[in-house]
Computed example of a mutant assay.
Amino acid sequence: MKNVALVGYGVIGKRVADAINVQDDMDLIGVCDVINDWRIQNAVRKEYDIYAATTDAEKQMKASGISVKGNLQDLLDKVDLVVDCTPKNIAAKNVEVYKKQGIKFIVQGGEKHQTTGHSFSAENNYKSAVNLDATRVVSCNTTSILRTLTALKRADLLDYARGTLLRRATDPWESHLGGIMNTMVPEKDIPSHQGPDAQSVDPDLDVITSAVKVPETLSHMHYWNVKLKKEASKEEVLNAFKTSSRIKLIHYDQGLVSNNTIKEMFLDMGRPWGDMYEVALWEDMLKVVGDELFYAYVVDNQAIVIPETIDAIRALTGIETDAHKSIEKTNESLGIG
């Protein structure tokens, strides 16, 4: 059993905390944050031990009736590894504390690759993360890119890939604070950052992405045009995708015609928050023309990195050195497949 700390109890953090809590080879020792509102109060209701990231936060938490076990340092003294799910750029500052403590840590995709020197995707480079001091679980979109392209690469089908990303404007719970309406906002640079980010995990990938922000909050959607190494059948391509347990093939002709219908399916499946840990890829939309492949899929940016983070904990701590065994264990615990 490895003792794990969770720093940052937000959209990703609360999901990581719950995922850690259902594993039988790691213990969630506590969650640390600066908030004292309904979000951290839900953590209290789940009986997670609460730690305050700052002195002011501790005062505010106690004033709100939250029992505080201690500060960040108190939490770090009890654990083998920290998963930092704080907002973008905050983790980079926390890293100095973790390094000084000599404790292993995981950051999320909002941080730069240089923060850890290693970026992680379970089906791609698990082995290279075993017993490292730190890694970065790549972003939701990058995770989806790596899962799909790695599956094609394993089948020796992938030559190069070009993708267009329709990005949700903001997280659903923050849509009252920002986002866009009645417009679409293209990212200025091509490639957009997701392609180079995927190459931080697999430098051999020939991938270029472009992205546009759209006025919705449910998920991201990707369209891909892939040049195959050879002419292939649709069945060969589907068999390649089926080698990934975290790609779910869905069917447009079964009523899954949009991101909201897909979300509803996962809610009906009983997933917490309706979370979709898999890439939901349309099987009946997929098209192969000679050596060209065209496909589309949906990405749940609040959920797709959760199983990756659990696998990263196992890799860094050395609980499990075999990627397949860790992925299988994580999948079973989260109801994937």
Rank of each mutant, 00 (worst) to 15 (best):
T330W: 00
R168Y: 10
Y160R: 14
V214K: 14
L132K: 15
V7G: 08
D268Q: 15
F120S: 07
L205K: 05
G102M: 00
N71Y: 10
D133L: 13
V279L: 04
V279Y: 04
D322L: 04
S326E: 01
E292P: 03
T261C: 00
L76G: 00
F241L: 07
A315V: 08
T135Q: 03
K188S: 10
A53V: 14
A129Y: 05
P203S: 11
D206H: 12
L316D: 02
R271F: 06
D253C: 07
M26E: 06
N259E: 13
P186S: 04
I319N: 10
L334P: 06
H118G: 04
E283R: 08
G117E: 01
T54L: 05
A296M: 12
E328P: 03
H176V: 14
Q199M: 15
V16I: 15
S233A: 01
V289L: 12
L158F: 03
S119N: 01
D253H: 13
A43K: 02
K78L: 15
D25P: 03
Q194C: 05
L132M: 08
T135M: 05
T116P: 02
D268V: 09
Q23V: 06
E58L: 12
D300V: 02
I327L: 02
N36Y: 13
D156I: 03
A63K: 15
N331K: 07
L132C: 04
S200R: 10
M269V: 01
V22W: 00
M1C: 10
V97G: 03
Q254D: 11
R271L: 04
S219F: 04
H193V: 15
R39D: 09
N259S: 12
V83G: 10
A129K: 06
Y223T: 11
S233T: 15
T183N: 06
G10K: 06
A161M: 05
L75D: 06
W282I: 02
I35M: 12
E216H: 15
N260V: 15
E332Q: 15
G178N: 03
